[in-house]
Design a protein around this nucleic acid. Structure first.
Lengths: 337, 337
DNA sequence: CGAAAAAGTGGCAGCGCTGCCAACAATTGT
DNA sequence: ACAATTGTTGGCAGCGCTGCCACTTTTTCG
């Protein structure tokens, strides 16, 4: 069927058959030319390409995928688009996937395991060539589906635990520990914590657990903590530190659940004239731009978020045995400790 | 074919036919039950559902979509994942689309029109139910393809121009103008500009054009400008302002291409002890968290990025005539002007 | 109580494409 | 010149599912 009849009636879309007919060749020949696969003469090539162009042919990958088994889609499941970590990871993954001819399909869980299950199922129904998910903790059924799918599965941004197939990340637990040891080595002793809802984001919980246990090894404990019930933000960090200092004014350092929160704390101190690090030290997590560019660069831990996306994507596109890669992190000794 | 033979040989995936056979019903009946569409007895329902569950059946939407014409995919094309604007818009769109049973497929152009064309073509080949693209400027072929596809097309985040079908955004030109008038009304006269690469991001160019022409109406012009050749960042803003002030130390206000840049400028002033706004006023664009939470809230323009995504998605999911919606913006009189 | 309507069900033809195979044409080698 | 290759090409059977239609039950109702 042509795209438009002589009388102007639109009739569906242009199909490969239309192109083949217009070019005066068989379907399979047209298909071969359009995919640059198999052999055909230069003349045939031209006529098919011309026909396709003049008809405005757009191949139907739905049909193509169904016929050839094995799509060029890769499902990506992340908890949020608000937390910079995930867009960063996504960016890395996107670059590599697109470079390898894959098309990412993104789904966002809002940190809910139930929704993760639904989304994984839904993505799998597109028969993707691979899946990338954030974190190592998933519902039993999610894991079962992922295993059952017999495709490459990458679990990203965490290395504290066992994965299904590919694991690329860094140890959040260890990052928390390193943060604590850094503060201790700098001589801080009355250390507080300002964090955000950790029941939802398990990586935050792991960090804090690592932090606590490293403190404990130094014979210390968290002197005071303030957990805000919502997700992290600069304002939450600012207000959280305000409240924490209201209750525990003698703290000499505060560990924040991430840089957003820490920058909030930094702003609180700036606004109140609290000397950093003289009167109060601040330590964050993530290594954001804003942390690096602040008048006093924030002491924090820089995580290889983009690289995690890239490496994960690369592995998902490849064959090979299950792999676990710890990309590590870098402790940035800024000016706030 | 069963998922696994008696001898343990894995044989492909479980199909609807398998489920139907296991449940002792016909394919179409199984299909109806699984989609909750059409009629079937409660008993049939149970047996199909049980069969599906015990076989670990995952429907194949590739096949489903091909058979039923019309997918539940919506293609989204954005220039970048690094600029907060796009993840924000994406978030709004995602919420609405998922709520309406659609699955977003995201593609990133890196601000290259050539790549946009490729990506639009590639996304269209998935026969999406709709498309959402950033901005109003596209290559001729891109527009042709989008029109040809006979699906809903939303162009987002800009309202300065004509669109293909649905346009949801705000006037970048007008935002620039409002910024200029604000500065003028506050009595600033020696106004500088620090911006980032505007050849790639057309919305930045529109803002600056609007800014200039509003200044001209007040009989003023941009006293000095510093354009960094890369994309925007806090550091770029900080360094840019440093260089600008080096060349033009007598400025009394600086307009930045966005809040990232402006916060960088703010940090520069903090670090150098330049009084804000006494000695120098700062004005940004976007209304980011960090701008609001800074010790001195940044004067800026807050744009309804998430709402643009939501509204655009809502319209893409609906029928109706071509529409253009200007969601406007809000000028935030912070403490930096 | 029988006819008409409704509910439940299975068969089967595609959706648009790819992969395989067989058919033929153009080369090459001997 | 003839056989053996190599290069080109079209036909056609699916991929797994949905939509339509025809058919068999039930239920409803005059």
């Amino acid at each position: 069927m042509a795209d438009e009849l002589a009388d102007g009636t639109p009739t569906g879309t242009t199909t490969l058959t239309d192109v083949a007919r217009a070019a005066g060749v068989g379907e399979s020949t047209a298909s071969r030319v359009l995919r640059g696969h198999g052999s055909f003469s230069a003349k045939t090539r031209e006529s098919v390409l011309n026909a396709a162009r003049s008809l405005g042919y757009v191949p139907n990958r739905i049909a193509g995928t169904l016929a050839s088994t094995g799509s060029k889609l890769v499902g990506i499941v992340i908890p949020s688009l608000s937390n910079i970590v995930f867009p960063d990871m996504l960016r890395g993954a996107n670059t590599v996937l697109v470079g390898a001819g894959f098309q990412p399909v993104v789904a966002v869980t809002d940190y809910e395991q139930g929704r993760e299950e639904t989304l994984v199922e839904s993505l799998l129904s597109w028969r993707p060539a691979g899946m990338m998910v954030a974190g190592l903790e998933h519902s039993e059924r999610t894991v079962a589906m992922l295993r059952h799918a017999r495709i490459r599965v990458a679990e990203l941004l965490d290395s504290d635990g066992d994965g299904i197939d590919i694991v690329v990340g860094y140890s959040n637990r260890e990052a928390g520990g390193a943060s604590a040891r850094h503060l201790v080595s700098r001589g801080y002793r009355r250390i507080g914590y300002v964090g955000h809802d950790l029941s939802r984001d398990l990586r935050v919980a792991k960090r804090f657990a690592g932090f606590r246990s490293a403190l404990a090894e130094a014979g210390l404990e968290v002197a005071a903590e303030e957990i805000i019930p919502s997700s992290s933000s600069i304002e939450a960090g600012r207000d959280g530190l305000g409240r924490l200092l209201g209750r525990a004014p003698d703290l000499d350092a505060v560990y924040f659940s991430n840089d957003d929160m820490a920058i909030g704390g930094y702003f609180h101190c700036l606004a109140r004239g609290i000397a950093i690090p003289g009167r109060l030290a601040i330590f964050g997590y993530n290594g954001l731009d804003v942390a690096r560019a602040a008048p006093q660069p924030l002491s924090t831990i820089r995580t290889p978020r983009v690289a995690v996306g890239e490496t994960g994507a690369r592995l998902v596109c490849s064959d090979g045995p299950p792999t676990k890669i710890d990309l590590g992190f870098e402790l940035i000794e800024g000016a706030t400790t």
